[in-house]
């Protein structure tokens, strides 16, 4: 181990520890878009070089196939063993979420736009940005209210149904498909926004105040 001659071993250990602390502190800051975006491209490239493609919603179809979905539709009648790698990939995403929220947790709330905060408070969301999700909706207690049930169960259903109907989700169409200049993916992304805007401007104001 290299130790500069003007430092004792104890001083050096202290120096290294401080460095580590600073690196963790730096990683614990929220990552700006220009760090996150290129890293998502890197994720896609790593999968391509590993001989696979980046598309998360395929795992939902694989799960149906493993659960015996082939009996109700030939859509689920395929060799799901070839898709196990994707389930391992999303297991990694769960672990990544655990690591980032346990050891790289940021202390400050999410710096949301002021307009968003004001609008959400009007819609009875009390602490916008205090956590990743509004606890009024994303909790087990909320699931047994009309508002919570609609948001979680209908929301999830639309995601699963729509992603398969469109043949992909944000990763498969918006990232992989657009990177490969696929016109169908552009149409799908336009659809994502049509649905998202209808929900945000027309339906959420009603659902959130149920």
């Amino acid at each position: 181990m290299y130790i500069p001659c003007n430092r004792t071993k104890i001083e050096h250990t202290k120096f290294v520890n401080q460095r580590m602390e600073r690196i963790i502190e730096w990683m614990s800051q929220p990552w700006p878009w220009y760090v996150a975006g290129p890293l998502i491209t890197l994720t896609m490239l790593l999968l391509l070089f590993a001989g696979k493609s980046f598309g998360v919603s395929d795992t939902l179809r694989t799960t149906c196939a493993i659960g015996g979905g082939g009996k109700v539709s030939d859509f689920f009648d395929f060799d799901w063993r070839k898709q196990v790698w994707n389930l391992v990939f999303v297991l990694g995403a769960v672990i990544g979420g655990f690591i980032a929220s346990t050891w790289l947790q940021q202390p400050e709330p999410i710096p949301l736009a002021q307009d968003t905060v004001v609008k959400l408070q009007e819609l009875a969301i009390s602490k916008p940005g205090a956590n990743y999700l509004p606890e009024e909706i994303f909790s087990w207690e909320s699931l047994f209210t009309l508002r919570g049930f609609v948001m979680l169960v209908f929301g999830g259903f639309f995601i699963g149904f729509g992603a398969r109907y469109a043949g992909g989700c944000t990763s498969g169409h918006a990232i992989s498909g657009l990177s490969n200049l696929q016109l169908p993916s552009l149409i799908a992304v336009i659809g994502f926004f049509i649905g998202g805007l209808i929900m945000t401007y027309l339906l959420l104001p009603v659902i959130l105040t149920l």
Binding site: F154, G155, G156, F157, F158, I159, G160, F161, G162, A163, R164, Y165, A166, G167, C169, T170, H173, P184, S185, I187, A188, V189, I190, G191, F192, F193, I194, G195, G196, L197, I198, M199, T200, L203, L204
Partner: peptide, 13 residues
């Protein structure tokens, strides 16, 4: 892509 995408967008939002 348009119908499927729109349904997905509703759920995403």
């Amino acid at each position: 892509y348009l119908f499927g995408g729109t349904i997905f967008g509703l759920g995403w939002a």
